[in-house]
Write a protein that binds this DNA or RNA. Structure first.
Lengths: 211, 211, 211, 211
DNA sequence: GATGAATGAGCGTTCATTCAT
DNA sequence: AATGAATGAACGCTCATTCAT
């Protein structure tokens, strides 16, 4: 029924908002139910239990996130690898900007050593590594890049993608910058674009930085 | 008394370890007491309440952290500004590496919108901004850098300093890298050193990236 | 639902019994739950918190208590004032006798300087004063009674109404008298009836006692 | 040592003040220690435990209280019994007025069904009954008074003695009367004096009230 | 699809008390 | 005589969850 879907989505939205503000353990089922204006038992009905909510959040983030990478890996046959990478980055940045609360929550929660989270996302992270590698291998397949250097490129890129969300409170309070604004997404994409150009497509620079 | 100090420190160490693993709200007073092999009431005795523990953690991180910046700001009179910045970065990286659990916990907890945390650390962050600005102003006082560009430099630098700890689980699981190891600290310092050189001391690059 | 009401009432009855025996602060939520054979969390469910229980007790006492006075104030138009007063006293004594545990608890708890209790009952006490005054004014509106004398009459009457419950343990242990027994209520009503007659309806006696 | 006695007395005074305000169970050892500006462990040193404090309070009240009755029982040989009773009442009222906090606390705590309090004071109450009876027997030894009538006289008298303290908050808030003021003690003594005269020394009145 | 009643476990905290010093 | 450290138990309360309706 239409009503039902709406309830489920309302719950998820309320949960994401609150998880983002207070962290997963700082939010109670009651908090979410109150914000979503539904009965706490309804959450159990739709998501089984609190952990089910967490899983739903992680899925809601990683499915589209990985789809952007998958799409460009498939494009490698027809397009230049640097264009594919830039396209993937652009889509990811835009998606993260449009879902900045979810993004922030997911990247932060992953930084915990929680066994629960790790079990859920480990396959996602493995898939992500594989997809990144596919693109990077096509892009920097010269003898100048050892496998370890390529790994480091991925790490750096990932750090840059997540950074605005893991420091969003700082960006907002101290510098008045908002990752969710279109302006920021555009500007930040240019920074990463420049970094890709400098480190991966211009041999001289790359050599200096990565020894 | 010697015994007392030891107890207080034991509590703090246990707390940092557990907070890092499960997050502040995911850890109970009893968890900490059990790990520290003391009575839960003793935590209230030494830290008043759970929030007192959080404050103690934040102080234990920010006091030394800021002292490294303060030291180099005082050195600006006798040393070249790029050396001062590098020295500060080196000290901070080493301190963070030696206290990687505390570092990870602090940077993660700050990313929450918790009113409590914000009240405690807001003055620290203001001081940090001031100190960074003092150094950056001396370093890039040419007409090429607008105030907004300088702000962005600080943001980027801060992002780089915190990155390994906000993604440490990823680094470890996927890439087998450990921020707490001396090797990593050294290597990572070189990366930042290069970044400082590229963006702040070589005008051509800087111009390109920051428009 | 029938079951629900029953649970709520069971809790209240258990609470009154225990509060009466050990005092409000001497009784724990768990004590009440154990006596009512329900889960401690259920008390929070029905009464929000422990103070909610206290408020429920005070309301359960003062609402009927004041209704007896209100009724007779309305009767002043049709009946003789001394009959109204006696009727009110009779009803109050009977109500107190039937709810002697609650009565004892309420009068005792009021004698504390607790801010919490005072806030709840201050409006009740004001209303009580107003109602007593309405009756007394009709009854002793001769020039022999100054306003201060009338006040003192109310005080004495209130003291007499509460006395058996504030000293019930003494009455029981030392003199084998039980305020909850019908016999005592009847007998005690006669005493107060006589006092009303002596002090308020016979001018000579009244003059002597109240100067 | 002089200092020691002072500390013990300071503790007792603080305890009486707080017990009176919040009740025995509403006051913690820490509260008392804080008010007395001493270490909590000191209370254990002087009074063994919290119950020891309660016992000390009861003793501090009943020893002088009963001494006034004992004194007048001894005087029965030389003085008229009505004078003895009035003298005892006067002394008791003055003592209670001077120690109104202790008085209020003791009479209120006795109204609990607490086993602890009962064990401590039962012998005091028995002694009190014996002493009252000695005086009353001498005073009303005519055939008009059955033993049960005499009991009721004692009950009434006791009720009158305690009333201002069991209702002191009401007297203060609603009528602006303060039992601890000399004025009140004087005035209240007159009321009881009149009552003694009416009920015990004038046969006609007494007969009416007590049947 | 949704709710109110109810539960057992655990929360942060405070308690009275002990004890070495 | 007095204190600070430490403890086990209990406090009021909230938690995620279950279940009949």
């Amino acid at each position: 029924m239409r009503q039902a879907t709406s309830t489920k989505e309302t719950i998820l939205e309320s949960a994401i908002y609150l998880f983002n503000t207070k962290g997963f353990d700082g939010v109670s089922i009651r908090d979410i139910a109150q914000k979503a204006r539904i009965n706490p038992a309804n959450i159990a009905y739709y998501f089984n239990n609190k952990q089910g909510l967490l899983e739903a959040c992680l899925v809601a983030f990683f499915e589209p996130y990985l789809s952007f990478l998958e799409m460009e890996v498939r494009n490698l046959d027809h397009s230049a690898p640097d264009l594919c990478l830039k396209k993937a980055v652009k889509n990811i940045l835009q998606f993260q900007s449009e879902h900045h609360l979810l993004t922030r929550f997911v990247w932060r929660e992953i930084s915990l050593d929680s066994q629960v989270v790790r079990e859920i996302i480990s396959s996602y992270l493995m898939k992500e590594r594989f997809l990144f590698k596919e693109i990077i291998d096509q892009l920097v397949n010269s003898e100048k890049y050892s496998p370890s250097s390529k790994s480091f490129l991925i790490i750096q890129l990932k750090g840059m993608l997540a950074m605005p969300y893991l420091n969003s409170q700082y960006l907002r309070e101290v510098w008045n910058l908002y990752p969710q604004e279109a302006y920021f997404a555009t500007r930040y994409f240019q920074v990463i674009e420049q970094w890709i150009k400098d480190t991966m497509t211009e041999s001289i620079n790359a050599k200096k930085i990565l020894c």
